[in-house]
Simulated scan of single mutants.
Amino acid sequence: MTSGQIKEIHCASGGPWGGNTINTKIWSLLQGIFGTEVLRTFIAENRDDYLDLVKNIEREKRLDKSNSKYRIGIPGSLLVEVKKSNPDMIAEKYRGKAEIKQNQLRIIPELIQSIFKEGIDTIIGYVEMLLNEPGLSKVKSLLLVGGYASCGLLKDAIQEHFNHLSVICPFEPGLIVLKGAVIMGHMDTPIVGRMAKYHYGIAILDDEQKPNFDGSHTSFSTSQQEFYTIIPKGSPIQVNEVVTEYDFPIEVNQVEAYIQIYASEDKQPPKLISEESCRTIGHIRIKLPRFRRTTKLRIGISNDETEFKVVAREEYTGKCFVGTCRFLD
């Protein structure tokens, strides 16, 4: 947008194809090269050296290169452990593909590329699928951020496949998310609109169903409780605009209004909160004075950049109450 603000045009999505998956595959490769039992003993007996090895793997994975040998620094304690079971250091299956020189494990590019290939191909296929959606047809640039964005294999593959787009990878992409969060904290309204990733809904629980203040629950069935949709999945959400209003009945001497918040990933919103796809993500509590007559609150729920805001207005007096929205860990 010309104002410098951001409007989300597709909800965040993806899968397990990133850096952690690559780490798992690299550790599987090390097990093949050195032996599973050797690595298990090394990890159990040399925790500091193990953490150094983890850092070495992470650093090498992020280096900006794609066609040279990968060199992973190997702690001396691991080399000692390897020699006990295999004086040749490298398992026969990997001889010619990996070698130990100057306390480094040097791996040929083809072997490393095979580790990255499946994940990179999946990422490219998923991005291509997204770009083919009607609402994303005008996208002109791709921005690569996060630690994995430093990987030369990933960057080269993205740039080659999407050569009709401007592919941007900023300096130190691993810090960009943190910097963005800091910038966001200093701007009034950096994000003006989002897309709902889930169906969001609420359920009104009575005094017997809601949790006590100490966190414990009274055991009563909520299996027939209705899922009241407040934000449908995939719908645009304008920041600070009320997304729903709900009339909440209040009994005489009732001290609070309690509302459960639910989410569902299904294509269609659930009808009941007991459905398998429906999960509790938080709750809203509105403290009330003791009304002397039955009344009702009109509850307005809005969304800012990071959370729900709740304001309730009493029917007869027009007095407003601010609700506290708490999300579960």
Rank of each mutant, 00 (worst) to 15 (best):
S3G: 03
K7I: 12
E8A: 03
I9E: 05
C11K: 14
G19H: 03
K25T: 03
F34C: 05
G35E: 01
L39W: 01
R40D: 05
F42M: 02
N46Y: 00
L51F: 07
K55R: 10
N56S: 06
E58L: 09
E60A: 06
L63Q: 12
D64F: 14
D64A: 14
N67T: 14
K69Y: 11
K69D: 06
G73C: 13
I74E: 02
S77Y: 06
L78M: 02
N86F: 02
P87A: 07
P87I: 05
L111G: 08
S114Q: 15
S114R: 15
I115F: 08
F116K: 10
I123C: 05
I123F: 04
G125K: 03
V127S: 01
V127E: 06
L130N: 01
L131N: 08
N132F: 05
N132E: 01
G135E: 15
L136C: 12
L144K: 04
Y148L: 09
Y148D: 11
G152R: 00
D156Q: 08
F162M: 03
N163F: 06
S166W: 12
P170T: 11
P173H: 02
G174V: 08
I176F: 13
K179H: 14
K179E: 13
G180Q: 10
I183H: 05
I183S: 10
I183P: 05
G185L: 02
T189G: 07
P190Y: 02
P190V: 04
M195Q: 10
K197M: 15
I202D: 01
A203R: 08
I204M: 15
D206W: 04
K210C: 10
D214A: 04
H217E: 13
S221L: 07
S223N: 12
P232D: 09
K233V: 07
S235A: 07
Q238K: 13
V239R: 03
N240A: 12
Y246I: 14
Q254M: 05
I259T: 05
I259K: 04
S264T: 01
Q268T: 15
S274H: 09
I284L: 02
R290M: 14
F291Y: 13
F291S: 09
F291M: 10
R292C: 12
R293P: 10
L297R: 02
R298F: 08
R298Q: 08
N303F: 15
D304Y: 10
D304I: 09
E305Y: 10
K309V: 09
K309H: 09
R313E: 15
Y316V: 14
Y316F: 13
G318K: 08
G318L: 07
C320M: 12
F321N: 06
R326E: 12
